[in-house]
């Protein structure tokens, strides 16, 4: 995509996001039309339930998509994402531990623990895969799967040890957007937005880092510092997001992928576009999740996985040329 079209594409995405949010607010079990006379309780449904939920979708979707874009650039791997590489499981485990130990630090306990465990799991995967040199995609995915299943085992262990909090824990495993604590949403929103803004200043570094660490160093990037910093920022984003929404898969994988096909691989446009598309996609997925079997609701993580997993296989198979996936 030409640089002169960048602003245009951002503007178009913002309009689509606004439309998606608007439509989503009026779709649901209770039929509300913006054009007819509102019942009294419609206000409550719109302002206290659906609007916070759309905000949450925007925060979570953009956070996951940007984290995915960072991972893919940093690991030179178009198939990396916080869910597949076990970072989300790490964050979920962190949140669960915070709940079980009944740590209470004025809304910061969950995001903080999620962040610490997300960071820990990234470091673990990175070292197991030996990603410093040229790591093949298989090695990286394998390391992610191993760490991820280990962490899942720990989550199951936590579940079996504590009967009382089991329901809370299931919340994290399936991905869920019913969090309605507005203070927590605000904190998480601030964290995610500041994370994305910070990453924007590292977008050019990410371009160079995607050439490989050796080359990046030779081109003047302080690779070790940059890498650590970006891992911390992405753990912060993933931790914050998972602490309110649980493990929602495939957004971080697919969104940057689709966006890259349209905008090209330059992270200066890829990051903001991914944030917007991530938000749009999650609003769509959540609208599906709460309407297809209304009045019942399916966890949004189920919806993203149902659409995401086949797409992942498609990407794997479509092969090396088009998506740029190399062994």
């Amino acid at each position: 995509m030409k640089r002169s079209n960048w602003i245009l594409s951002i503007a178009v995405l913002m309009i689509i996001l606004a439309l998606a949010a608007y439509i989503s607010v009026f779709i649901g079990t209770v039929k509300i039309s913006p054009f007819t006379q509102w019942q009294d309780y419609y206000r409550t449904i719109i302002y206290d339930i659906r609007l916070p939920r759309v905000f949450l979708c925007i925060i979570v979707g953009s956070g996951l998509a940007v984290a995915g874009a960072i991972f893919q650039g940093l690991l030179r791997n178009p198939l990396a994402d916080p869910y597949i590489l076990g970072t989300s499981s790490g964050a979920a485990l962190g949140a669960i531990i915070a709940i079980m130990l009944r740590i209470n630090m004025f809304f910061f306990d969950l995001p903080l623990f999620s962040f610490l465990f997300a960071l820990l799991s990234i470091i673990l995967v990175y070292n197991i895969a030996g990603a410093k040199g040229r790591t093949s995609i298989q090695t990286l995915l394998l390391a992610g799967i191993i760490v991820s299943s280990f962490l899942s085992a720990l989550i199951m262990l936590a579940m079996s040890l504590s009967r009382r909090e089991t329901h809370d824990i299931i919340f994290w495993i399936m991905g869920n957007l019913t969090e309605n604590n507005f203070s927590l949403i605000k904190i998480v929103g601030t964290l995610v937005v500041s994370g994305i803004v910070t990453v924007m200043f590292f977008a050019r570094d990410l371009n160079v880092m995607s050439m490989g660490e050796e080359t990046a160093g030779q081109l003047g990037i302080e690779t070790e510092k940059t890498k650590k910093f970006l891992f911390i920022i992405s753990s912060l984003i993933v931790g914050a997001v998972v602490s309110v929404s649980g493990m929602i898969g495939f957004i971080g994988l697919i969104v940057p992928h689709i966006v890259r096909m349209i905008t090209g691989p330059d992270h200066r446009i890829l990051i903001p576009s991914s944030a917007l598309v991530g938000a749009i996609v999650l609003i769509a997925a959540d609208t599906i999740a709460r309407t297809v079997v209304a009045p019942l609701e399916i966890p949004v993580g189920v919806v993203t996985a149902l659409f995401g997993a086949p797409f992942f296989i498609y990407l794997l198979r479509k092969g090396k040329r088009v998506s740029g996936v190399k062994d």
């Binding site: 030179r76 791997n77 178009p78 040229r134 371009n207 995607s210 050439m211 490989g212 050796e214 080359t215 160093g217 030779q218 081109l219 003047g220 990037i221 302080e222 690779t223 890259r260 090209g264 691989p265 330059d266 740029g324 996936v325 190399k326």
Partner: peptide, 22 residues
């Protein structure tokens, strides 16, 4: 600083693998 050496010394590897379509 790496920036400083990068202005003085450039490196051309044997083979370059670019994973994204720059």
């Amino acid at each position: 600083k790496r920036r400083e050496t990068a202005r003085r010394i450039a490196f051309v590897p044997e083979e370059t693998v670019v994973n994204f379509s720059f």
